[in-house]
């Protein structure tokens, strides 16, 4: 495999990561959202492995396997189990004006592109052009957290943001040191457990995971 083909495959996977990010932005069903999140993790994992191969950084293989285990298998499983346990029957969520959200998403991609253009000019890495995609994925994750009302979807937005950050680290510097990556991975895992516990508490207190309900916490009512 020559370097050009490798770069092409990495770029293609980056495009798929961006596509799944947009898919999550407009997906109404929670189960569909979790599937998309798992797919994004898979693309991320494969692209990390290929970057590791192309750059000869073998610790990226470990990150890739870690991503696969955590974001493709474990986290979607935990989320699925949570939804099952919490008996979220009304799994279709109203999203604030889908076409508008998509347009904002496109604007965010353009913004990330112009923001990372200087880095792209300076860098010599094979992955330099996907930095813009990674930044866009982070921002779309953030947008998703803002536009959704359901606590579980907000968490998925947060995890998608983390995916974007991981992607940015891979593309900008061929990944963070292994210790940092291990730390982040365990952080995310612990976060998922804590979120799970929080979900139970929110659900038992408000009988709903709609975060709008939290406005009822005001005093004197």
């Amino acid at each position: 495999m020559d370097i050009q083909t490798t770069a092409q495959i990495i770029n293609f996977l980056a495009a798929m990561v961006l596509l799944t990010a947009f898919g999550m932005l407009v997906q109404r069903r929670i189960y569909g959202l979790i599937h998309l999140f798992a797919w994004q993790g898979l693309f991320l994992s494969v692209s990390t492995a290929i970057v590791g191969y192309a750059a000869g950084r073998h610790h990226l293989y470990i990150s890739s396997v870690l991503t696969l285990a955590l974001k493709v298998i474990l986290l979607p499983y935990i989320l699925n189990a949570l939804i099952h346990k919490l008996k979220i029957r009304k799994e279709i969520e109203t999203v604030v004006n889908v076409p508008l959200t998509m347009l904002i998403g496109i604007a965010l991609v353009i913004f990330s592109y112009s923001l990372t253009a200087p880095v792209r000019e300076m860098s010599t890495l094979v992955t330099r052009s996907i930095l813009a995609i990674a930044l866009a994925t982070v921002m779309i994750g953030l947008l998703m957290m803002i536009t959704r009302r359901h606590a579980v979807t907000q968490i998925i937005g947060f995890l998608a943001m983390e995916n974007g950050l991981f992607f940015a680290a891979t593309s900008a510097t061929y990944g963070m040191p292994l210790v940092v990556e291990l730390g982040v991975a365990i952080d995310v895992l612990i976060a998922a457990f804590i979120f799970g516990i929080f979900f139970f508490h929110i659900n038992t207190t408000f009988d709903s995971l709609d975060v709008e309900q939290m406005a009822r916490l005001k005093e004197g009512e």
Binding site: A15, F22, I106, I110, Y113, I130, I133
Partner: peptide
């Protein structure tokens, strides 16, 4: 999707 394709052309 079409717009993303156009952006992908410039970015990637």
């Amino acid at each position: 999707l079409a717009t993303l394709g156009m952006l992908a052309h410039f970015i990637l």
